[in-house]
């Protein structure tokens, strides 16, 4: 399980829906991060957009900066 509080900007994370996001900034509330979509099988229009991503949706750290 990922402690999202510790994720640095630039970290790439895989989500439960198969998307990959890159952390833009971390409010360190342990629950949300601000991230940019790099890919999304669910909705390709998400790619490049910035969203708040919920901790429970994050599956795996892919790369760290």
């Amino acid at each position: 399980m990922i402690n999202v509080r510790t994720l640095e900007p630039g970290t790439r994370v895989a989500l439960t829906d198969g998307s990959t996001v890159e952390i833009v900034s971390n409010p360190k509330d342990g629950i949300w991060v601000f991230a940019r979509y790099l890919s999304s099988p669910r909705d390709t229009s998400l790619v490049g957009t910035e969203e708040m991503v919920f901790a429970q949706d994050m599956v795996e750290i892919q790369t760290t900066p």
């Binding site: 900034s25 409010p27 509330d29 342990g30 629950i31 949300w32 708040m52 919920f54 901790a55």
Partner: peptide, 11 residues
């Protein structure tokens, strides 16, 4: 930057 509720996560 945000006030996040620790109960269900509304932010």
């Amino acid at each position: 930057p945000v006030f996040t509720c620790p109960y269900h996560g509304w932010s």
